[in-house]
């Protein structure tokens, strides 16, 4: 067999499978996004089967753009993704620098720290929203009730009682509510993905130029300026990669949002698609195409970055 045919033959199963996986469903989404297609409609039963005669042009896109949920879902997606990115990168850099130098038990701390990353999303959400954040029965509720009780007790003590009587009664926050459920999601995903950032930054820190650092120390550079002018620039590339990989993952967050609030006031694009898909397939598909466009904007940057180091 010739040298050219063989690699093709070995690669073809993977390529064909991925090609089908990518093209078939996506072209169906594209097609559905241009036609009227609903699952239930008693007055217009012809719309319940996909057909080219139900052509709607850009009508679905217009419908989606005009629905008030869409703009909100985009904003909310961006709020969630950007908050998570900011928190994980900042925490990740700080923690990586903190635990990079050896100290007693470094290995154990690493293991403790990485563990959240392997928790399945469904368990993550169930654990946080119930056992930790529940305003009455979770740790939050118990802690707030404990503080209130202590403060109430201290009000009657002499001397310092006057100070504590100025304290308000604290109210636990319900994280299933409309305004707060996004924060619950941000919190739980940050908890899960900070370890990922730490792991990557630590890997990168290990290749930091130690000689340069020692020279800086000899020159009397402060710890801050070492961090600012040596470590942070060294981490520039890993930070960019962490940001992009996470952006791709978090743009399609779903389980956490579903479990925390069933999307109540906390929709993101994938959730909105799921909602539309209960009946209005045309709108769901148009929203899907928007989601693809959004993901592609991020993906192009990531691919460029990865591509550079590829064949080194």
């Amino acid at each position: 067999m010739s040298d050219r045919k063989l690699p093709r033959m070995l690669q073809s199963p993977a390529v064909i499978l991925l090609l089908i996986w990518m093209l078939v469903p996506l072209s169906m989404t594209l097609y559905f996004s241009f036609i009227r297609y609903v699952l239930n409609n008693l007055r217009r039963p012809e719309w319940t089967t996909p057909s080219i005669s139900n052509w709607r042009g850009l009508g679905n896109y217009e419908f989606v753009l005009k629905s008030k949920d869409f703009l909100f879902a985009i904003q909310n997606s961006l709020l969630i993704v950007c908050s998570i990115l900011f928190l994980t990168v900042v925490l990740g850099v700080l923690i990586a620098v903190l635990i990079n130098k050896s100290f007693p038990g470094q290995g154990i701390v690493r293991v403790l720290l990485i563990s959240p990353f392997f928790v399945m999303p469904a368990v993550n959400a169930v654990l946080w929203i119930n056992m930790i954040l529940d305003p009455v029965l979770g740790l939050q509720g118990i802690a707030v009730a404990g503080i209130n009780e202590t403060v109430a007790g201290l009000r009657n003590t002499p001397l310092i009682g006057g100070f504590f009587s100025l304290w308000p009664e604290f109210n636990p926050i319900s994280f299933r509510a409309t305004q707060t459920s996004a924060y619950a999601v941000i919190m739980m995903v940050t908890w899960q993905w900070t370890p990922f950032a730490v792991l990557i930054f630590m890997t990168s820190l290990q290749s930091e130029d130690q000689q340069q650092k020692e020279a800086a120390i000899l020159d009397g550079a402060s710890a801050w300026s070492q961090f600012r002018f040596l470590t942070l620039p060294h981490l520039g590339r890993p930070i960019a990669i962490v940001v992009m990989i996470q952006a791709i993952f978090h743009l399609s967050l779903y389980a956490e949002i579903e479990i925390v609030s069933r999307g109540n006031g906390n929709k993101n694009l994938p959730y909105l698609i799921g909602e539309f898909a209960n009946n209005n397939i045309g709108a769901a598909s148009a929203t899907g195409i928007f989601a693809v466009i959004l993901a592609n904007i991020v993906a192009i940057f990531l691919l460029r970055m990865v591509g550079k180091t590829l064949m080194e």
Binding site: W21, T29, I273, A291, V292, L294, L303, V306
Partner: peptide, 18 residues
């Protein structure tokens, strides 16, 4: 290789109904 990676970036929800 890059193309394979790009298939990973397709948001799952976009092809939910199909």
């Amino acid at each position: 290789l890059m193309w394979m990676l790009s298939t990973k970036m397709l948001p799952a929800a976009a092809v939910l109904y199909p």
